[in-house]
């Protein structure tokens, strides 16, 4: 390590320079607040907010996991085990592949059902919000009359 280099001293110098910079540019603190607000604004738009949102996120996970395949591992501890297993895998591929294909079709159908449910929940949630707003407006109107 170079003889002139002192990690603790460098950190202290950085802090000192930072204090000096802050003093010279008072708007820096304001900028940090603006950056934080910007992040919070985008973040709050895109965050998972409710159960319907959680359902959609879970649905995406299910979509990822639904793509199964029949190429299982062929490692082996026994001599010649791996090539034998690979051979067997190739020989039964027509059979296992057909079963896997049916399972994949079933997964796809299930996922489609879940997507329909998720969309229906979203529609219902929006409708409920509209109705709640109408009820609130009616209450306000009634309070105004009385």
């Amino acid at each position: 390590m170079s003889a002139e280099f002192d990690l603790g001293l460098v950190v202290e110098e950085i802090r000192e320079e930072s204090r000096r910079r802050r003093a010279a540019s008072p708007n820096v603190a304001e900028l940090e607040r603006v950056y934080d607000e910007s992040f919070q604004r985008f973040s709050s738009i895109i965050q998972v907010r409710d159960d319907a949102d959680r359902l959609r996120a879970s649905l995406r996970q299910a979509e990822r996991l639904s793509a199964i395949n029949h190429l299982i591992p062929t490692a082996s501890r026994r001599p010649l085990g791996a090539p034998v297993k690979k051979g067997i895998r190739n020989v039964v591929a027509w059979y296992v592949g057909a079963v896997v294909s049916q399972v994949r079709d079933f997964n796809r159908a299930n996922l489609n059902t879940l997507r329909i449910i998720a969309t229906a929940i979203t529609t219902l949630e929006e409708r409920v919000k509209e109705l709640e707003a109408q009820i609130e407006a009616l209450h306000a109107e009634r309070r105004g009359e009385s």
């Binding site: 280099f5 460098v10 950085i14 930072s18």
Partner: peptide, 23 residues
């Protein structure tokens, strides 16, 4: 600001850069 100052120091001060590489 601390981080920006530290980045600048590492970027412009060869002694600090080399010291950190060795460390």
């Amino acid at each position: 600001v601390d981080f920006a100052v530290a980045v600048e120091r590492i970027f412009t001060d060869e002694c600090v850069r080399q010291g950190l590489v060795d460390a």
